[in-house]
C-alpha cells in the first residue's frame, strides 16, 4: 500500500457516496447511466470472486465487500426505487460492444489460462471502458447536474491516482502489472475530455455544459 493507491481508493469510495447521495437527495437517477452501473457490478463480481480463495488484507476484504454491495445497491435504487426517473431512451449505448471485446481480449491476453484468472482479466478490460455509456449519455444530453460531475470527477481521480501508484511500485517493489497498467491508462484517457470541462467550467462555478 502506498499513498497514491490509498488516495485512489478513497476517491473511489467518495465517488460512490456522492452518487448515492445524489440519487437520494434529488430522489432521482436522472443523468446516470444504468448500463454503466450494471457494468460496474459485473466488473466487481468478476474480479472479487477471489474473496473466496485469496486473502490479501482486512482492508482489501472490506473494500471488496463494499464495492460489490454498494454497486448492487445502486442498481436496486435505479431499477426499483427510482425507476420512473430513469430514461432508457437516452441510455442507449450498446454494451455488447464493450462486453464482447473484453471477453475476447481476456481470452487472448492474460497471465494464465485459468477460469478465475480470465475473469480477473476480463474485469480489468471491462472496467477500462465501463464509463463509456455514462460519457455517451453526457455527450448526448450535453449537460449534467453539478453533483453528477463531482461523481465522475471522483471516479476519474481514482483511476488517475493509480498511475503514480504503479510508477511508485515499479521503483520501490519492482512490481509491474502490464495488463492493469495498459487498461488503466486507457481508462484514465477516457476521462480527459470530461476533466477539461470539469476544471474549466464546474470548478469555476459554472454549469457543466458542452458546446453545442
Amino acid at each position: 500500500m502506498n499513498l497514491f493507491r490509498l488516495l485512489g481508493d478513497l476517491s473511489h469510495l467518495a465517488s460512490i457516496f456522492i452518487l448515492i447521495h445524489k440519487i437520494q437527495t434529488t430522489r432521482s437517477c436522472r443523468g446516470i447511466s444504468f448500463q454503466t452501473q450494471a457494468l460496474y457490478v459485473t466488473v466487481f463480481v468478476a474480479r472479487y470472486i477471489d474473496l473466496f480463495f485469496r486473502w490479501i488484507s482486512l482492508y482489501n476484504f472490506f473494500m471488496k465487500i463494499f464495492f460489490i454491495a454498494s454497486s448492487v445497491y445502486i442498481l436496486y435504487l435505479m431499477k426499483y426505487r427510482y425507476r420512473p426517473t430513469h430514461d432508457p431512451s437516452i441510455d442507449t449505448f450498446k454494451v455488447e460492444y464493450l462486453v464482447g471485446p473484453a471477453v475476447v481480449l481476456s481470452l487472448i491476453f492474460n497471465y494464465k489460462f485459468e477460469f478465475t484468472e480470465i475473469l480477473w482479466t476480463f474485469s480489468i478490460y471491462l472496467e477500462a471502458v465501463a464509463i463509456l455509456p455514462q460519457l455517451f449519455m453526457l455527450q448526448r444530453t450535453g449537460e449534467a447536474e453539478t453533483i453528477t460531475t463531482h461523481y465522475l470527477a471522483a471516479l476519474g481521480a481514482y483511476r488517475a491516482l493509480y498511475i503514480p501508484n504503479w510508477i511508485y511500485r515499479y521503483f520501490t517493489e519492482d512490481v509491474v502489472d502490464p495488463i492493469a497498467i495498459v487498461a488503466g491508462l486507457v481508462q484514465t484517457g477516457l476521462y480527459l475530455d470530461f476533466f477539461y470541462v470539469y476544471f474549466t467550467k464546474v470548478l469555476q462555478g459554472q454549469k457543466f455544459e458542452l458546446p453545442a
Binding site: D50, I56, S57, M63, Y111, K112, W120, V175, V176
Partner: peptide
C-alpha cells in the same frame, strides 16, 4: 518482476 496472480489492488 511481473505480478502474475498477485492481484492485490482493487
Amino acid at each position: 518482476h511481473v505480478v502474475e496472480e498477485t492481484h492485490d489492488e482493487l
